[in-house]
Design a protein around this nucleic acid. Sequence first.
DNA 1: CCAACCTTACCAAGGTCGTGTCAAGGTTTC
DNA 2: GAAACCTTGACACGACCTTGGTAAGGTTGG
Lengths: 122, 122
Amino acid sequence: MAALTINEAAETTGWSARMLRYIEREGLIEPARSDAGYRLYGPGELQRLRTLRELLAEHDISLGDVGFALRLRSDAGLRDAVEGWLAAEPRRPAGVAADDDWLRFEQLKHERLLGRSEPAAA
Amino acid sequence: MAALTINEAAETTGWSARMLRYIEREGLIEPARSDAGYRLYGPGELQRLRTLRELLAEHDISLGDVGFALRLRSDAGLRDAVEGWLAAEPRRPAGVAADDDWLRFEQLKHERLLGRSEPAAA
DNA sequence: CCAACCTTACCAAGGTCGTGTCAAGGTTTC
DNA sequence: GAAACCTTGACACGACCTTGGTAAGGTTGG
C-alpha cells in the first residue's frame, strides 16, 4: 500500500491527472513528493479526493468555493472580516438607537470576536 | 433622511445601479421595496454597501465568495460538510491507527459537530 | 401629460474556471 | 538505452461571472 503516482491516483479517484494538479494548486490537497519531485498520493489523500468529489456534487459548490473556505479557516483576519460583515445585517431593532450607535455596537461585537482562534484539534 | 432609490444609492456608495441589482441577486443586500416595486436603500444598507467594497478590496475576494460565505452560514448542512472535509487533513499521527480507524475517527468528530447551531445573536 | 425616474429582461464584451492536450525535459525500469 | 513514466509551462476552448448597455414598460411629480 505504498503511495500512488499521479496517474494511478487519478485512476482510483475518478479525477484526471490534470485536475489533481489543479486541486493541488488550489491548496486543497498537497501530496508528498519523491526525491525526483514525483507526486505521491497516500491512502489519506486518496480518500480525501474521493470525498471531495462527493462534497462538490452533493452541495453544488466549486473547487474555488472549497478553496475559499480553506482561506477562511486559515486566515483569521479574513474570517473575522467576512463574519463581521455578514453579522451586520441591517436589522435595527426598530427603536433601539440611532444608526451611528448601531454601527458602533456592531463594531464592538466584532472586536470581541477577535479573541477567538483555532479550536486546536483535540 | 428617508430611503434612497437605486441611482441615489449608487451615487453615495460607489457601486453602479447595475451592481446593486447584482448584489441583491447574490443575496447579499436586499433593500426594501416601495409599493410600486422601487428599491429603497436605508442607512444600514448604504453603510453595508460601503463596507462591502472595503471587504472585497482589502482581502481580494469576490462577491461570489461573500455569497458563498453567506451560504455557509445559513446552510448548516453545507457548513458541516465543508468543515468536516477541511478538518480531515491527512495528518495521521504517524503510528496511531490504521487508516480506516482514522477515517472513522474523523467521521465521529464530524457527527459531534452536528449539534452546533447559530449562536442566536445575544 | 411629460420628463425623469424606476422595473425586468435581454445582448454583449472581457475575465476567470475547469479541463484537455501538447511540448521539452528529467526519472525509472527493464 | 529505450519505453513509459513523471515534471512544469503553455495554448485552447466552452462555460460561467462580472459589468455595462439598451429596450419596453410602469411610476412620480410638477
